[in-house]
């Protein structure tokens, strides 16, 4: 499991909830500092959540395509060096 997936989903869902809540409650009681922080930070969480989901999606696509030749070579070289150091 790619950890970015659950992190992305959690912050996306919380971001949507906070944004909607902030949008619907634009009264002084919900804005102690004069800023609609629920709305503003909800959007930030949503963007972060979607970004993590995007990274996870990109990594999955790469895995499906198979390792790139350069990355495979680097991994092989790293294994050889580790074996030598043991």
């Amino acid at each position: 499991m790619d950890l970015r997936t659950p992190i992305g989903w959690l912050f996306t869902v919380v971001g949507v909830l906070l944004t909607a809540f902030g949008w619907l409650h634009r009264t002084a009681a919900f804005m102690p500092t004069g800023i609609d922080i629920d709305l503003v930070w909800g959007v930030v969480l949503l963007v972060f959540g979607l970004f993590m989901l995007g990274l996870a999606w990109r990594a999955r696509k790469r895995r499906e395509r198979g390792p790139a030749p350069a990355a495979a070579n680097a991994a092989a070289a790293s294994h050889e060096r580790q074996a030598a150091s043991r």
Binding site: L18, F30, G42
Partner: peptide, 9 residues
Amino acid sequence: FYPAGMLGL
């Protein structure tokens, strides 16, 4: 500083 919502977070 935190209203409902941010308080939960």
